[in-house]
Simulated scan of single mutants.
Amino acid sequence: MTLRRIVYAIVFYGGSTVYVLLGTIMAFISKELLARIAENWSWYQHRCMAAIGGVTVRIEGELPREALLYAIKHESYFETIDMPRLFDRPAVIAKGELLKIPLWGVVATRYGLIGIDRAGGAKELRALMKTGRAMAAAGRPIIIFPEGTRARPGEAPPLRSGFAGLYKLLNIPVVPIAVNSSAHVDRNGLPVRKGAVTYLVGETIPPGLPRDEAEARVHAAINALNLPGASGS
């Protein structure tokens, strides 16, 4: 591990401990203040990554910040933590194990992170649909990493079934977003190479399309930065 990565880990995770402690307190006092803490923590990662890791962020295309469904490529924990900075109180769908982390799990649950058990089957999907509908009704953007796991550079695993269910149930537009975070940070969010992580915003996909068409369009759009010579590579 390089010195830059060591310094980043010490500064970011040390500072994150303070945010988690504050968030734990606010989780039982004010959800509005908790949301501000989450956003500030997201900005903290952004600033640490730029100042220590030499990694910045750029957005290509127009990124709406409305209460829509956002399907995003997932290569690192970096983009997961970056979501509260990019959106207003996003409801992020993530693996349920994260909610079991002491203190952080309490904060994430109260904030509105939607934890799912990938082996939960139909019952888990029904719970996801119910929670997703409640979040959409509350006017919150819903973030899903439809491939279901952190992909390695160049990988394009198939979409998980949860995306199609949410798309059909919520009946709202989908904004697909490609990400090339693995070019500059590792799977765990530590900096490895200076440069700019790119979010490439794809064409908004309207609701009501046949499942195969919607999935094909989302899959192609979120993997656009995997193509040879793609912008941001």
Score class of each variant (00 low, 15 high):
K168I: 15
Y111N: 01
L103Y: 02
T131I: 07
R110F: 01
P173Q: 06
G96K: 12
M129D: 04
R193G: 11
A50L: 13
D117R: 05
A138W: 00
A38R: 02
L33Q: 03
E124P: 00
T198L: 13
Y111G: 05
I172G: 07
V57N: 02
A108H: 01
N223M: 03
R118L: 13
I116A: 03
N223P: 10
Y70T: 12
I10F: 11
I93H: 00
A50G: 05
P210I: 12
G154Y: 07
G120A: 14
T204I: 12
T2V: 03
A220S: 10
K100F: 05
N223Q: 10
R118V: 15
I93R: 01
K168N: 12
A38G: 02
M1P: 06
I144T: 04
F12W: 11
E203K: 07
G132M: 00
R65Q: 14
L3D: 07
R187N: 08
I205N: 11
T56W: 05
R110D: 04
G195Q: 09
D186S: 06
W41A: 13
L22G: 08
H184D: 14
I72V: 10
L159D: 08
V11M: 03
L3C: 08
L125K: 04
V92W: 00
P207G: 05
Y8C: 13
E147V: 13
L33M: 12
A221L: 03
R152T: 11
L200A: 10
S233Q: 14
S16E: 14
V218C: 06
E215A: 11
F28L: 10
S182E: 04
V20K: 00
A196M: 14
L69D: 10
K194S: 11
A71C: 08
A91E: 02
H74M: 07
C48A: 02
A108R: 01
E32L: 00
S233N: 09
K123Y: 09
R85N: 10
Y70C: 13
R160K: 14
Y111P: 02
Y8P: 12
E155W: 07
E39L: 06
N40Q: 05
G162C: 03
V7E: 01
V107H: 01
G61I: 04
E124K: 00
L103V: 10
A196N: 14
S30A: 00
A196I: 02
I114D: 00
Q45I: 15
R126A: 15
D82A: 13
E97F: 07
V20E: 14
C48G: 05
R187C: 06
S233R: 11
L103K: 05
I116Q: 09
E75R: 01
L22W: 06
I143Q: 10
I52T: 07
L169M: 14
